[in-house]
Design a protein around this nucleic acid. Structure first.
Lengths: 165, 165
DNA sequence: CGAAAGTATCTCGACGTCAAGATATCTGTG
DNA sequence: CACAGATATCTTGACGTCGAGATACTTTCG
């Protein structure tokens, strides 16, 4: 079975036979697979009327556990966007009735973003849908292979996470 | 060695013990690693005064082989952006003197984008720099593990590439 | 207690991308 | 040979993100 990266690597070997392009065999596949996953996620979420960024925010709140609330600051460290972007996102989620903004009782500068009932339902449904789609993609691999793949990837990701993202 | 995905999965198991979140062990790591790679690439290219999108366009032309030219249409299928975006990119690369626009002798609707000498040098230097950075990231794995990882990833990517992206 | 430094969030302007439409050219059919 | 439809590229307007700065409040320290 051949993929686009095999063709990419072959082209480089033809044009730059002096270079060792082995690293691309792993890392270009990671990047390309991630792009395909983004598209698949977008499709999966559209079934629930959600954009990927909405899913990211809602599930961050959902994972926090009852009462499902975090500050905008905590949300932006978890989702890796800037504060201007997060303000905009909270505005739109509020307009859709999926979250509410509450004053922080302990810090009058602060705000707490809390999931509404509807927001929690959306998050739960969208997560279930996403997992179903992902299981299909992973059906290419035997369970033992999946475990092995996860372990190999953990080795590559860990140094980044360790470095304080 | 623990990473962010271990924490993510643990949080879901706590909040949704009824769900099987195994797929996240593989696919969330793919997405997160891709994001880290994007940042690393951005840093690597900055050493050569290039943005990631500039690298994508220049290397597509470089891989085409002498005389290093492609039509805007070919470029946009390779880089997966829309035509408006590609027009804009070609404009800016032209302004930087890295490519030139030539009329297609066989089709007066068409244009050919050709790498300049400076553009080819940039592409070659940036590729070498990128490979050096990527080798460092992959040093976490033994060569045999890298080969195995590449093979596992190929199984997951191939169905997407096959489906006509 | 009061001033300075730190923190949390929001506002605003610039930028890159996308999607749809416009223009010019080519190709196949009758 | 003329015309309809296909193709190649560019133009335009809307949108989301970023980054810098503004505002309001809190904490620290003299």
């Amino acid at each position: 079975m051949e993929d686009e990266v095999d063709r990419l690597v072959a082209a480089w070997r033809r044009e730059r036979p002096d270079l060792d392009v082995e690293p691309l065999e792993v890392l270009s596949r990671v990047s390309r697979l991630a792009r395909h996953l983004d598209r698949a996620r977008r499709t999966a979420f559209a079934e629930h009327g959600l954009e990927p960024w909405e899913f990211d925010v809602l599930t961050a709140l959902r994972r926090a556990g009852a009462p499902y609330q975090l500050s905008p600051g905590q949300l932006l460290t978890q989702t890796l966007v800037t504060s201007g972007t997060m303000t905009n996102r909270i505005d739109r989620l509020t307009a859709k009735g999926l979250v509410v903004r509450l004053p922080d009782p302990d810090d009058r500068r602060g705000v707490l973003v809390r999931l509404t009932e509807a927001g929690r339902d959306k998050a739960d449904q969208a997560l279930a849908g996403l997992l179903a789609h992902e299981r299909e993609i992973l059906a290419q691999l035997a369970p033992a292979q999946q475990t092995e793949l996860a372990a190999l990837l953990r080795n590559l990701v860990a140094p980044f996470d360790r470095a304080g993202q």
